Simulated scan of single mutants.
Amino acid sequence: MNKQNSQISDRAMSQSDKEHMVSIPIEEWADLRDVYRQDWPKGAYSYCGLDTYIQLSRKDLDLCKREVRIRSVDNNWREHGIFILDDHTDYSHIIRVDTCTSEHSSLFKLALTYMDLESCDEIIFRETIATTVRQYLQESGYPLKQDCYPRQLYYLSKEDSLKLQIRENADYNIKPLTLADVEEVERFWLYKRKGSSYIIRRNIKYNLTFGAYQRETGELCAWVLLNELGCIGFLYVKENYRRQGLAEHLVVHLCQALAKQDCDALAHIRDANVPSLKLFERLGFKAIEYNYWFIKEDIFTE
């Protein structure tokens, strides 16, 4: 074991520490979600993300019990909203952590010590807690090589989503994706890594999705999914089918489907992704904050 891995191992949380965490039962996840309804839409990211897991639990309780765990530092989580969400599949381990207030900074720092840094592949966190999370990761032996993949979070209310106009295109059938489309979606996914095929499969099976299929050939030409973060994601149009408005067409379909489920719409966009920025801003989306991804494999990749 090299020095860096030794430092990380020495700082790993003991089993007794983990046992002091408070597990939030699935039937109370909605209470935690609703804490983030305060000061709307600033808490939209965690609200919508938690809601996605609530919907997953209603569709496949056994899978949710097996793969998802939400914990907090004490039983006052309805007050401070501090949580650690572990989405731990057979292929990857993603952690989400948040707090809805800055008044409990010491408790939030304690919560960070409960993260399983040895096991996890990614940690996702918001702009409001970014400084604290980065500092903890560095103190735990993880030198951050870059700025943790910042993405702007864009927001559109359900009321505004319902105002969007769907323009039909006679050349394409717009319908939900199927599990037969998993391989195609992954093949064009820019950020694919360990476990991405399984996550795409889970998203297609349980979340809202739309694909544009060429009427004559049945080819899947473009697609969009509601991802595991509760955000519009995986948006892609194959090169031969661009400049036909398919991206906008699919996003509008998904926004309206979300609105009909009484949900607002969110999307993560890189600052450098000018076409996506123009599309979402044209539809009325507004940037509300940055979110960040700590991807552990980057630390050990030269």
Rank of each mutant, 00 (worst) to 15 (best):
K158H: 08
I95E: 04
L179Y: 00
N291T: 13
D51N: 15
S157Q: 05
R201V: 08
N227L: 06
M13G: 11
I200N: 04
N273R: 04
G195Q: 08
V274G: 01
Y142Q: 03
D298F: 13
V35Y: 00
T113Q: 07
D298K: 14
R11A: 14
A12Y: 12
K286C: 14
E122Q: 15
V182P: 03
T113S: 08
F234C: 10
A247Y: 00
R71C: 15
E239N: 07
Q261Y: 02
E219A: 15
R126A: 06
E28Q: 14
I123H: 03
P143V: 06
R126P: 02
I200H: 04
K158P: 04
V274A: 02
Q214Y: 08
C100Y: 01
Q146N: 13
Y290S: 05
L220E: 03
E159H: 10
I8W: 03
E302A: 11
D74Y: 02
N75W: 06
E228R: 10
A265R: 05
F210N: 07
R202I: 12
Q38V: 06
A287E: 09
Y91L: 13
A265L: 04
E139C: 10
P150Y: 04
I204Y: 07
I288Q: 11
V22T: 15
L279N: 05
R167V: 13
Y241L: 03
S197G: 12
N173E: 13
L107F: 03
D90H: 12
D121M: 03
F300T: 03
I8A: 05
S196L: 06
L246A: 04
Y47M: 02
S105W: 05
L190E: 05
L250M: 06
I269D: 01
V251Q: 00
E27F: 06
C48W: 11
P143D: 07
V224T: 15
S105D: 11
A287S: 15
C221D: 03
T128F: 01
I232V: 14
Q135G: 12
N227M: 05
F280V: 07
Q138M: 08
K192Q: 12
A130D: 01
N207L: 03
